[in-house]
Design a protein around this nucleic acid. Structure first.
Lengths: 177, 177
DNA sequence: TACGCTTGTGCAACTTGTTGCGCAAAGGAG
DNA sequence: CTCCTTTGCGCAACAAGTTGCACAAGCGTA
């Protein structure tokens, strides 16, 4: 699972506690790999057991901050994994199921839901574009790491733009006939 | 969960057995909502208990074909659900995690994996376009149901095209500097 | 009839992801 | 100092999705 690797990546950027990790997932990493704080704590425990990361603080002390750092085996594991291959994740979209259902039923209008999605995608797009403008202003000098991070962000932008274009297309198409 | 609704949709198109459903999921529905045969059988059992569908055949007879049909409550449930609202599913992509990891490590080259993904997306795109051409040839007269089904298929095409464009862009960008 | 292959069905066990709650520590307000 | 709120941590239970196996029936073949 990629959760391990996402956590390793985040911890390499800056060692921190589980709660801080959860916050970072909500902000940046989570845009392309989501995780709840429970998943994160569970995974941190497993990774600690496997010797990928280490913590200062007693493992059993509840309510006690535990600061995690990546160990050499953790870094090695991430390197191996990043150089490896992965599958494509197929689309899994409720809206499309709704439309397929509407096609069979013939009694349901999905255009309102389409417009709502258009709005939602627009919001997300604007958020991504704001981040891109803030962190990677056009014309600035960029390192290789920056290029990669920007590419990831661009994936999100392209993704949202394509959904937006599709929504527009579907809404315009049948009506314009 | 949309699995219930996806099954209802498929059964409305044509009543059939669990195995046949599984095959249909692999072929058409599964392009935007996947399910294994286990999920399907489990769900069929629950839906039968809830009175959404009915089967000819004994529930406990193993190895015995059970043919399912949608009942009125099932159709009503699908109508209600299709007219409802849903959340956006955020991106969840391993490749992007790999790239973020590579950005932090600085020792990993992801271009080979990018090219591989480009190829995979290209394959999927061609499959979708073949289906579109076969089932909805351009210029033909189309019903409202056809328009909806085509829109769903178009979503897949747009999706794959946008990933392809992104792969191309990322591969060309940093190299062309 | 006996044998093996394929198909349809389903149990069991596991992993991953989600939700809700509880407890401990820290820090501010009375 | 005591009370209360916030923050960090984690258990427990559940829902969804995956994997592997097992059993029954049908069918072709010897």
């Amino acid at each position: 699972m990629s959760l391990t690797q996402a956590i390793l990546t985040s911890l390499l950027e800056k060692p921190c506690t589980g709660a801080e990790l959860a916050r970072r997932f909500d902000k940046s990493l989570g845009y392309f790999w989501q995780a709840t704080h429970q998943q994160i704590y569970r995974e941190l425990g497993a990774m600690e057991r496997d010797g990928l990361i280490a913590a200062h603080g007693l493992p059993t002390a509840r309510g006690r901050q535990r600061h995690f750092t990546v160990l050499a085996p953790g870094r090695a594991a991430l390197e191996t994994w990043c150089a490896g291959e992965g599958e494509l994740r197929p689309i899994r979209d409720e809206l499309l199921v709704r439309m397929r259902g509407a096609a069979v039923l013939g009694t349901v209008d999905v255009s309102a839901e389409l417009r709502r999605h258009q709005g939602l995608h627009h919001e997300v797009l604007q958020r991504y574009e704001a981040i891109a403008e803030r962190d990677f202003p056009s014309g600035a000098q960029r390192s290789t790491a920056d290029e990669l991070q920007l590419a990831v962000l661009t994936a999100g932008i392209v993704y949202e733009k394509s959904w937006l274009a599709w929504c527009e297309d579907v809404l315009a198409g049948p009506a314009g006939d």
